[in-house]
Amino acid sequence: MTTETIEAPARPERPQRAYAALFRSPSGAVGLVIVAVLVVCAILAPYIAPHDPLVMAAGPRLEPPSLAHWMGTDQFGRDVLSRIIYGSRLTLMIGTIAVGISLSAGLLLGLVAGYASGWTERVLMRIVDVLFSFTEIVIALACIAILGVGLVNAMIAIGIASIPFYARVTHSIVLVEKNKPYFESAVAAGASHARLIFLHLLPNVIPTLIVIGTLGVSTAVLAAAGLSFLGLGAQPPQPEWGFMLSSSRDLISRAPWMMIFPGLAIAITVLGFNLLGDGVREVLDPRQRAR
């Protein structure tokens, strides 16, 4: 029997390729650097921060940026730079916990609804639709009203509020994948429900959700900052960026640095995660992979 020429160049392992590709896209590289800096700050906070973020009167009160206090001090004499560095821990925590909750719950809902079809699908997706019809912040406020004020509760609230979004995205991807012949081929091979869901659907849903989740971190950070600003999230003396913003509100004309630097930190973090999300999308895009 004649065999066609078999030529498929050896490729390096996949993860390696993914990182390399991430660095090749400029936005991905910038995003990756910003997020990496943030992670390093969070991990090494005690070693990099020049002062204790909580100790009052580390310097004179409301001191403008100087060599001793690069970003100045707040009304209690706490070092703003140190508070921002320690705040990165809370920010990352908010991002991961909130996205973790919404992603896992949304994924589960969407997968089950999309796979099951029929009544299960209709009921689940209508519930999601109802939740979707409220603004996320309203749901978050409702959750906080039930759970009580506090940063952890704020994270949970934000997580719950964006479940419908992830559920919908997952559901629509599942519907597309379920109609592809490879899925039918697995059914025809006699695959069990668990196998179909976890080996065939899940791996094809995950890449898109990684992209959306990365982008979602920035939304979560913003939402948490917003809740803290309203006094529903972080409580004093936690060095949370949104809370720092809100406590500087009255002093905006006397000590603008108290507002500028946490604001910048939030903005740059959000930008970083957005860029990273875009980069990841480019890397995971099948058309990119095909090259």
Binding site: K180, E184, P203, N204
Partner: peptide
């Protein structure tokens, strides 16, 4: 067992 028309879609890409 079944063999499908579109060999590009009938194998799980992952």
């Amino acid at each position: 067992q079944m063999v499908f028309q579109d060999p590009f879609a009938s194998l799980n890409p992952r």
